[in-house]
Amino acid sequence: MFKRLMMVALLVIAPLSAATAADQTNPYKLMDEAAQKTFDRLKNEQPQIRANPDYLRTIVDQELLPYVQVKYAGALVLGQYYKSATPAQREAYFAAFREYLKQAYGQALAMYHGQTYQIAPEQPLGDKTIVPIRVTIIDPNGRPPVRLDFQWRKNSQTGNWQAYDMIAEGVSMITTKQNEWGTLLRTKGIDGLTAQLKSISQQKITLEEKK
């Protein structure tokens, strides 16, 4: 169930391209415009997507990853294993993690069937560096609404905000991946996880038929 919630949630996290980005210092504006741009692209490019579902990787690479804190999220997933990894191991892992996100997020976007969304009203940021933004996803086919909290983090150097995690039903996506990959990290280390991520990233994206 959580895996499905995570995939549905990713439908609204794909941010804007650099040329049309919203105010990078306001995570609420980023979330709002990102959702609108993403849904528009999914709707307008269905012919290309249906002809070649792996085209979704391109959308992810162009529109999402430049505005997601990939390395920060990847380091959180590694936890204690990050500090013990060599620079070469980290570089290989982050490259594999990025390719994994292209496949995983692309597969999530393949679930698009006309969903709509509501974003919580903007709250004062103050001096906060981590801000959760509640998004409610509404399914046109009558499924119950899904309420999610996207975690946005302020870059201490640039002042810009980027998304790095999502919490559904009190469970963090980062925590879920830590639990899912924990045994592999304990037995085969970061190299074993890197190899698995490379394998997963090679899987073809498949479209979910409308139910």
Results as ranks from 00 to 15, higher is better:
residue 107 Q to R: 03
residue 198 K to G: 09
residue 177 K to W: 13
residue 136 T to A: 10
residue 74 G to Y: 11
residue 5 L to Q: 09
residue 103 Q to E: 06
residue 177 K to I: 14
residue 188 K to G: 10
residue 110 A to D: 12
residue 168 A to N: 11
residue 93 Y to H: 08
residue 32 D to G: 02
residue 143 R to L: 13
residue 119 I to M: 13
residue 64 L to D: 15
residue 179 N to A: 02
residue 173 M to A: 07
residue 178 Q to N: 00
residue 159 G to F: 01
residue 32 D to Q: 05
residue 173 M to Y: 08
residue 168 A to E: 15
residue 188 K to T: 13
residue 201 S to V: 08
residue 175 T to C: 13
residue 116 T to Y: 14
residue 158 T to N: 00
residue 206 T to P: 06
residue 136 T to M: 15
residue 104 A to W: 10
residue 114 G to S: 11
residue 135 V to H: 12
residue 117 Y to S: 13
residue 99 E to G: 08
residue 71 K to P: 03
residue 44 N to S: 13
residue 180 E to P: 14
residue 138 I to D: 13
residue 94 F to M: 00
residue 187 T to R: 03
residue 2 F to H: 06
residue 147 R to H: 00
residue 178 Q to F: 14
residue 56 L to V: 11
residue 68 V to R: 15
residue 152 W to E: 01
residue 169 E to M: 07
residue 87 P to F: 15
residue 31 M to Q: 02
residue 66 P to H: 08
residue 150 F to S: 12
residue 147 R to F: 07
residue 142 G to N: 11
residue 41 R to Y: 10
residue 197 L to K: 12
residue 125 L to A: 10
residue 106 G to C: 06
residue 45 E to W: 11
residue 110 A to I: 12
residue 104 A to Y: 14
residue 180 E to F: 12
residue 130 I to E: 03
residue 166 M to R: 08
residue 136 T to Q: 10
residue 1 M to I: 00
residue 100 Y to L: 01
residue 86 T to C: 05
residue 43 K to F: 13
residue 103 Q to L: 05
residue 160 N to H: 13
residue 67 Y to H: 01
residue 171 V to C: 09
residue 152 W to S: 06
residue 17 S to I: 03
residue 28 Y to S: 04
residue 186 R to T: 13
residue 144 P to F: 01
residue 80 Q to C: 11
residue 175 T to K: 13
residue 15 P to A: 10
residue 54 D to W: 02
residue 7 M to N: 00
residue 165 D to K: 14
residue 133 I to K: 14
residue 23 D to E: 00
residue 202 Q to T: 04
residue 184 L to W: 08
residue 190 I to M: 02
residue 56 L to F: 08
residue 62 Q to R: 05
residue 92 A to G: 04
residue 80 Q to P: 07
residue 193 L to S: 10
residue 123 Q to C: 12
residue 130 I to Q: 15
residue 172 S to N: 05
residue 154 K to F: 13
residue 37 K to E: 02
residue 184 L to I: 12
residue 132 P to D: 15
residue 59 I to E: 01
residue 60 V to M: 00
residue 4 R to C: 03
residue 3 K to I: 00
residue 149 D to N: 08
residue 190 I to Y: 13
residue 36 Q to F: 00
residue 90 R to G: 12
residue 3 K to A: 03
residue 135 V to N: 12
residue 58 T to F: 08
residue 144 P to A: 08
residue 14 A to F: 15
residue 2 F to L: 02
residue 28 Y to W: 08
residue 189 G to P: 08
residue 146 V to N: 13
residue 32 D to N: 15
residue 122 E to R: 04
residue 69 Q to D: 00
residue 180 E to G: 11
residue 120 A to D: 07
residue 15 P to Y: 08
residue 178 Q to W: 15
residue 35 A to S: 13
residue 205 I to D: 12
residue 12 V to E: 04
residue 200 I to R: 08
residue 58 T to C: 03
residue 172 S to H: 10
residue 135 V to Q: 12
residue 141 N to F: 11
residue 154 K to D: 12
residue 111 M to Y: 00
residue 150 F to R: 09
residue 118 Q to H: 11
residue 141 N to R: 10
residue 39 F to K: 00
residue 158 T to H: 12
residue 191 D to Y: 12
residue 67 Y to S: 12
residue 96 A to P: 03
residue 172 S to Q: 11
residue 181 W to N: 04
residue 130 I to N: 02
residue 205 I to N: 15
residue 56 L to M: 00
residue 30 L to K: 02
residue 92 A to C: 03
residue 15 P to Q: 00
residue 132 P to R: 10
residue 57 R to S: 02
residue 10 L to E: 02
residue 143 R to Y: 13
residue 86 T to Q: 02
residue 95 A to Y: 03
residue 113 H to A: 02
residue 91 E to F: 08
residue 155 N to G: 06
residue 192 G to D: 12
residue 98 R to E: 06
residue 189 G to C: 07
residue 140 P to D: 12
residue 201 S to E: 03
residue 73 A to G: 12
residue 89 Q to Y: 05
residue 75 A to E: 15
residue 40 D to N: 11
residue 98 R to Q: 03
residue 164 Y to L: 05
residue 105 Y to D: 06
residue 123 Q to A: 09
residue 170 G to V: 03
residue 186 R to Y: 01
residue 103 Q to T: 14
residue 81 Y to G: 03
residue 100 Y to N: 10
residue 38 T to Q: 06
residue 191 D to E: 01
residue 67 Y to N: 10
residue 182 G to P: 09
residue 116 T to C: 10
residue 12 V to R: 08
residue 54 D to G: 05
residue 181 W to Q: 08
residue 84 S to R: 02
residue 133 I to Y: 01
residue 208 E to D: 15
residue 194 T to L: 08
residue 154 K to C: 07
residue 136 T to V: 05
residue 3 K to N: 01
residue 156 S to I: 03
residue 60 V to H: 00
residue 131 V to I: 11
residue 112 Y to N: 04
residue 142 G to E: 14
residue 45 E to S: 08
residue 178 Q to L: 15
residue 163 A to L: 11
